[in-house]
Amino acid sequence: MTAFADLTSPQLAEVLAGPRKPVLLLPVGAVEPHGPHAPLGTDEIISAGMCARAATRLADDPDVRVLVLPALNYGVTRFGAAFPGAVSVSEPTLHALVVDVCGSLTAQGFLRIVVVNNHFEPAHVETLRRATAEAGVAYLDLVRRRNAARLTDEFRSGACHAGRYETSLVLADHPALVDTPTMATLPPVPVNLLSAMAEGKDDFVAMGMARAYCGTPAAATAAEGRSTFDVLTDLLVEAVREVVR
Rank of each mutant, 00 (worst) to 15 (best):
A138G: 12
A107C: 03
C160D: 07
E32G: 13
T127W: 03
A133W: 02
T228N: 06
T77M: 04
P10A: 10
L140C: 01
L72H: 11
Y74T: 07
R156G: 00
A86K: 13
F83S: 03
P33T: 03
G136E: 13
E199C: 03
R241K: 08
T180F: 01
S90A: 15
T8E: 14
A162I: 02
A218S: 12
S104Y: 11
V240I: 15
D153P: 09
L169H: 01
E14V: 15
R211M: 06
C102M: 02
D202C: 10
A13G: 08
V116Q: 13
P70T: 10
A86N: 15
P84T: 05
F4C: 04
G49M: 12
F110H: 10
P27L: 03
T228I: 13
S157M: 07
V231K: 06
D43M: 08
C102A: 11
G49H: 04
H161R: 14
A52H: 06
N118E: 12
P70H: 04
M209R: 01
A81V: 05
G80W: 01
L24T: 00
R65W: 00
C214D: 08
R144C: 09
R145A: 15
R146C: 05
V28L: 04
M183W: 00
E121F: 04
P175Q: 12
G29R: 00
Y165A: 08
